[in-house]
Design a protein around this nucleic acid. Sequence first.
DNA 1: AACGCGGACAACCGCCACTAC
DNA 2: AGTAGTGGCGGTTGTCCGCGT
Length: 301
Amino acid sequence: MMRTPSNDESGLKKGPWSPEEDKILVDHIQKHGHGSWRALPKLAGLNRCGKSCRLRWNNYLRPDIRRGKFSDEEEQLIINLHSVLGNKWASIATHLPGRTDNEIKNFWNTHLKKKLMQMGLDPVTHRPRTDHLDLLSNLQQIILNAANIVSNCDINNALRLQYSLLPQSLVNGVLGFNNNIQNFYDGSNIGISSQIIQPNLQNFEAPLQQFLPQECDEYTQKFDEQIGNTNVDSAISTNLLPKLVSISPQRSATAKVREENMMINEKECCNTSSTSFETWGDFMNEDANDAYWKDIIEQQY
DNA sequence: AACGCGGACAACCGCCACTAC
DNA sequence: AGTAGTGGCGGTTGTCCGCGT
């Protein structure tokens, strides 16, 4: 079925490009370069706006574009990069020669997002999904926050505490942990040591998998000794514990995301003594001087 | 064969940052 | 310093196409 060509109010054509239009655009750019995109359509004889020409060229016609199915290596690279960069498709695309940001974005939205969800991971945070059990999510948050106020109690201890308070069947079943996760987040194929890429997951997973029964009692005892007598509700109401926040808030508007990023940047910039689990600092370690990692961070900021 | 549905992806839209003046 | 023009980016939409009924 042929799509009926649509034109905007200025008479410029919109919608899919025809092979003839493609040829005109390619011929013109090969002969003259694109120059000013705004001026290009008139010079080339195309009834399109400059922006449409630029998108068509950059996303489809450019000779260095590699089309076709994403390889397993590319797929894993995208996942790893997304766990570091988030929805910075343009930045991610710079690490995949021949792939466009648009192509990667589409691939993420149609394939990888689902794949992560099927593995029980939140595609936004790359952490185990919590959306299907708010109660558990809140409990995690309470315990993590509690750990933050316990002196010298790091995040792994907090998770051990959490684990010690939950039946194993609940942890495994609800959070959807499985053995594939470790392999899934192996960053070795992009030259990043697995310790760099994995910590955001290890913080959750490793304490659970490598947990020793005797440590349960040890940390539970520590928890009880230090804050065990504290009523959680009253602790929250008296600001002893921070208020609960969603671990994976639903956000769709660009403005919201940007606002959030600004807040995160501001927080990280100003709060040098942060103990929050959510901040970048927790994912960094002494290995972070890896050149590739630096490159990624530089792109982020 | 006709139809509906959902996945895939090309293209568009709106906003933002940068630059020149 | 303010403004207009331009290109880049990310979110979203619209259409095609394959598949099942």
